[in-house]
Computed example of a mutant assay.
Amino acid sequence: MINVLLPRRGRELPPRPSPGDLLAEARGLRVRLGQREVVAGVGLRVCAGEVVALVGPNGAGKSTLLSALGGDVAPAAGEVRVGGRPAPDWSAPQLALRRAVLPQAATLSFPFPVEDVVRMGRAPWAGTAREDEDDAAVGAAMAATETAEFAARPFSALSGGERARVALARVLAQRAPLLLLDEPTAALDLRHQELVLRICRERAAAGDAVVVVLHDLGLAAAYADRVAVLRDGHLAAEGRPAEVLRDELLSDVYRQPVEVLPHPRTGTPLVLPKRDA
């Protein structure tokens, strides 16, 4: 039996999903930006308990698809469903309880302390039965992202990598069951790239669904349950990493010859560009 928390001020709160529950879905999705069709007839399902990586070359439509899955971009055709309903049927506050979005760039106009930035992720729960979790959620998010040590520093004084981790902490503090992360490792060093993807796996193991845009195919192979390869707005392939990350497909999609080798210890696909020497 699902226990639904009753809100204090009349808002319906989402129950915790069960493993395999469908949390987001795109059906025949088409998105136009100006005169260009950026997403062209894509279908994708995202379920609780899994990490789905969106990969592909620049301009393939990964970020636009991610924004559409979060209900932030209106489709020209097709449908996006979040939490069992068409995304436009949710109000903005209700949608924020069900999905958390990490954009590519984290910018703030004012020098808020880091802890206050992370606490912004708790705004959707204000006035509900779960607002008592605010301190615990903020503390856990900062510990997970290794940002607690500079909690009092202004966000504007941080390096690019530190800002990226604080932005991720804000998303984690939101405690939505669907996490949509756009290139969360782009500004990070090797240690923190691995940290972020381990967090993704931990959230999936705890019952959340994670959709993450990645350029590093090695990270996608190592951490994703499924990989969706995009090319020119189309879904070129989708499936388990070992099934999708193939020499011929990737060489064609990226217009760069590659070779895919099994890791000598784990068997995880390693994607390497072919070089003359």
Rank of each mutant, 00 (worst) to 15 (best):
A164T: 14
L158H: 01
R226V: 12
A224T: 03
C47S: 15
H234S: 15
L195P: 01
T64W: 06
H215D: 04
A186T: 10
A220F: 04
Y223P: 10
G59R: 06
G127H: 06
L235N: 07
R32H: 13
A144L: 12
L66C: 10
V31W: 05
R191I: 12
A222I: 11
A100C: 00
L66F: 03
I2L: 15
A26Q: 01
R226E: 13
P241G: 00
I2E: 14
V244N: 10
L180I: 07
P7E: 13
G59C: 11
G160C: 03
S63L: 10
E50C: 07
L95A: 00
G161N: 02
G49Q: 05
E131K: 06
R203D: 03
P257Q: 00
G127K: 05
E133A: 13
P75T: 07
E37G: 02
N3D: 14
G49R: 04
A136P: 06
N3I: 14
L188Q: 02
L5R: 13
V46P: 00
L172T: 04
P241L: 02
E248Q: 09
Y223K: 03
V211Y: 00
V101T: 10
P177W: 01
R231S: 14
R226I: 10
V4E: 15
D216S: 06
P57C: 11
L261M: 13
L97C: 12
G20F: 11
A242R: 12
P86I: 07
D135F: 12
G121T: 06
V118P: 10
L95M: 12
A209I: 01
L172S: 08
Q104P: 05
R246M: 10
L102H: 08
G83I: 04
R11E: 12
A206C: 00
H215L: 11
A96W: 01
T145Q: 01
L5A: 14
E194I: 14
G59L: 03
V258C: 00
D189Q: 03
T266M: 12
G10M: 06
V73K: 05
P269M: 04
V4P: 10
A123V: 14
D216L: 02
P111M: 05
R85Y: 09
V211W: 00
L270E: 09
G121E: 06
A176G: 05
V227Q: 03
A167N: 07
L29A: 00
A167H: 08
Y254K: 09
R198G: 04
D216Y: 08
G59P: 01
P75F: 04
P241F: 04
W90H: 08
A140M: 14
P57V: 09
G139M: 12
C200V: 11
L245T: 11
V258E: 02
A123N: 15
Q174N: 02
E194H: 15
C200T: 07
A206N: 01
L158Q: 00
G43Q: 01
D276P: 11
V213P: 00
D232W: 12
L102F: 02
L179H: 03
P269Q: 08
R203K: 09
A205H: 11
P124C: 12
F110W: 05
S91M: 01
